[in-house]
Design a protein around this nucleic acid. Structure first.
Lengths: 162, 162
DNA sequence: TATTGTTATACTCTATAACTATA
DNA sequence: TATAGTTATAGAGTATAACAATA
């Protein structure tokens, strides 16, 4: 399927994808670490911005992860003053999650880091090639039903994911 | 940097890469599971084929993982009769690792699965697009010094990597 | 009876540092 | 004194199942 000095497996598109994708994830985790966020944190903060007032169950469903694992993550972000659990008048079992101003500011910083990170990853590609790559990756993402912004790593998130 | 309904982060090339790469890894782990191998196992078996007689330390260095973690993995593969630790006459501290015939047969089966997997991942791309994608990914891989066949996941391998 | 958020338990995996046998 | 392979220990992370409050 592929040519070259090495065997077919290690040079296949699928292997390259896994390899380069893991590298991109690792790099993002590295550049994000100074802000004291994991990629998973970043994804949650971003999602809270676009879905304000969401409950933990809804959030867990969107991320395809178990709600019980979300508790500690939300606890940590709340204790840092980045989001707030707010009592819900109509259903007192649920808590609406809302970003605080500090949380929005954190998201802004995360966005800066992410853009720099994207620029670094794409450094060896010109604009046309970046569009090509995005198009081809988007095709595969669509084929597997991946949702924009939802990293598969949430299903079994540790220090990865996001 | 990117347009569309969602914010720039979640549609960036870097995020798409991480997302689709993780998906490809997950899929590979799934299709490999019936053979009772993890992606990490598969990578080690492949490496033993191309570097017969290698020691555990050398193997650990190639994979950028700690040698102590390799012990259990090698133990398991040896107990399944897929490889053998052979005494080394010149330096009796080291053991040469060699695939057995059963190990070579396992590699053949893994190769079949990997080719089917690659075909599935690339299903929505024509030949020209596959070559384009491989070229662009290869460019990024080169930029980060990724070595063919060495998945970054070995550095912290669990049930992933490979 | 079902659901939300939470906690507790048992289990897996890992990093680190020892240890042995060789060199 | 240094290295290869191994084992032990302690810690982190996870899944699962409970639980209390509410619907």
């Amino acid at each position: 399927m592929n040519s070259g000095r090495h065997n077919a497996i290690s040079t296949s598109v699928a292997f390259l994808l896994a390899q380069v994708g893991a590298c991109a994830s690792d790099e993002f985790a590295k550049v994000l670490a100074p802000l004291k966020f994991t990629p998973g944190d970043a994804g949650i903060i971003r999602l809270l911005k676009s879905s304000p007032g969401i409950s933990q169950q809804e959030l867990a469903r969107k991320l395809e992860m178990h709600a019980s694992r979300l508790v500690a993550v939300i606890d940590a972000l709340e204790s840092r003053g980045l989001l707030a659990r707010q009592a819900n008048a109509t259903d007192r079992r649920t808590h609406s999650l809302e970003l605080t101003d500090a949380g929005s500011e954190a998201l802004r910083q995360i966005g800066q880091v992410a853009r720099r990170h994207n620029e670094a990853v794409c450094a060896s590609l010109d604009d046309n090639e970046r569009n090509q790559l995005a198009e081809l990756l988007g095709r595969i993402a669509g084929q597997y039903g991946l949702r924009p912004g939802v990293h598969p790593g949430y299903k079994n998130l540790g220090r990865n994911g996001g």
